[in-house]
Structure formats: structure tokens, C-alpha cells
Amino acid sequence: MSNYYESEDLKKFGDIGQHAKKLADGFFKYYGDVTGTDGALTKREKALIALAVSHAQKCPYCIDAYTTQCLETGSNPEQMMEAVHIAAAMQAGITLVHSVQMQNHLKKLVL
């Protein structure tokens, strides 16, 4: 294998049941219940959240899968890009809010 990530490998997701079928079955049931049905959130809203998380977690499999899922649940490219910006803004905010920790410690060091 020349790369760590191969798009063809997405199809092998089901293979995680090898050596731990009961756990995988439980996971896939939970995953399907959470993402694959309309609930308090619509499937469209869930797909946009998943797309944002896919970017935040930098998962190329998930980005491919949820780009398609967003289109198949009716989102448009502007909505999808905004979802990615939410992930980006959250990550920037999370980084920046940690500067409070830096400032707190800085104050301790200034005697």
C-alpha cells in the first residue's frame, strides 16, 4: 500500500467486525440510529454536523461520505461550506481560549 488513506478502504468499514463482531454490530446499530434517521434533528441537519466533524477530525473517508450525504439530503454547497467554517471557527476559538491558561500561568511567573 502506497498511502495510509485509500478511498477504496471506505467500503471496508464493515470489516471492523472482524475479531469483535458483537461490538461492531452494536456500533453500527447505534451509528445508523443516530445518523440515518430523522429525529429531533433532520437527516439533513445531521449530515451537515457530521460534515463539520469530519473536517475537524480530518477524516478523508468521512469527508467523502458526508459530502455525498449532504447532497443526498438536500443541502447546497453554500450550506456545506458554512458547516466547515463552523468547524474551523470552533477550532480557532478552542485554540485561542487556551490562551487564558497561558495568561494565567504567565501571571504566576511574574513575581
Binding site: 439533513r44 455525498t68 447532497l71 443526498e72 439530503t73 438536500g74
Partner: peptide, 9 residues
């Protein structure tokens, strides 16, 4: 890819 649900679209 497949079409989104007709009513929502």
C-alpha cells in the same frame, strides 16, 4: 448520487 427527498427539495 441519489436525489434528496422530493418534498423537502
Amino acid at each position: 448520487y441519489l436525489p434528496a427527498a422530493q418534498a423537502g427539495l
